[in-house]
Computed example of a mutant assay.
Amino acid sequence: MSSQIPESLTELVDDFNELAVPDRLQLLLELSDELPPLPERYEGHLDELERVDECQTPLFLAVEVEPAGDPHGTVRLFFHAPPESPTTRGFAGILHTGLDGQTVDIVLAVPDDVPFSFGLAEAVSPLRLRGMVAMLGRIKRQVRDQVVG
């Protein structure tokens, strides 16, 4: 994998690609189950999160850079997707596991096409993968907006 992809994301890419297609779906479901709940400050306030319309089911995300505005800060990711949307939640789980806690520079350097690296094109529709690409794009844009102003 490219050196532009953080190790945590590279490990997930490797994990997915070592599996047969049906097992990739199972791993995606496991990541769906592991997606952390929203912190209390966002509970009941989905209007404070950004909706990713490209996802087939409602997905909302928020990005925070700590310390605020620091171009070398740490990126924190928060997602909300209904439990009955395991594929969308799984994509969010991949991005959370791979990018939460990384630095601004690392997150911004992730190639936009990394969602196609997980070997999921054989398992889910291109429309669903488009949702994950959109999530990554929104994350990177929110990071840029917070550190550039």
Rank of each mutant, 00 (worst) to 15 (best):
M1L: 14
M1S: 13
S3H: 09
S3E: 13
Q4W: 08
Q4R: 15
I5G: 00
E7F: 11
E7I: 11
L9D: 01
T10F: 08
L12C: 04
V13P: 00
D14H: 12
F16C: 03
E18I: 08
L19N: 03
V21D: 07
D23V: 04
D23P: 01
R24M: 04
R24S: 04
L25G: 14
L25K: 08
L25N: 10
Q26N: 05
Q26F: 05
L29A: 12
L29F: 11
S32T: 02
S32K: 02
E34D: 15
L35G: 00
P36L: 02
P36Q: 06
P39V: 03
D47C: 02
E48W: 08
L49R: 03
R51K: 14
V52P: 01
D53T: 14
Q56P: 03
P58Q: 05
P58A: 09
F60M: 10
L61K: 03
L61E: 05
V63W: 01
V63H: 03
V63I: 07
E64C: 08
V65D: 03
P67L: 09
P67D: 11
D70M: 06
H72K: 14
H72L: 13
G73T: 05
T74S: 06
T74P: 02
R76N: 15
R76I: 09
F78A: 10
F78G: 04
H80Y: 12
A81D: 02
P83A: 13
P83N: 10
S85K: 00
P86D: 04
G90K: 00
L95H: 02
H96Q: 07
H96S: 03
T97A: 15
D100G: 06
G101C: 04
G101V: 06
Q102R: 12
V104P: 02
D105R: 05
I106W: 12
A109S: 14
V110Y: 01
V110Q: 01
V110A: 00
D112Y: 11
D112P: 06
D113R: 06
V114L: 10
V114T: 14
S117M: 13
G119H: 02
L120R: 01
E122A: 15
A123E: 13
V124H: 07
S125P: 05
S125H: 12
S125R: 11
S125T: 15
L127K: 12
L127V: 15
R128P: 08
L129V: 08
R130H: 14
R130L: 13
R130G: 15
G131S: 08
A134G: 04
M135E: 10
M135F: 10
G137F: 05
G137V: 04
R138L: 12
R138M: 10
R138P: 02
I139D: 03
I139E: 04
K140A: 07
K140Y: 11
R141S: 13
Q142S: 13
V143E: 05
V143H: 05
Q146P: 09
V147P: 01
G149C: 08
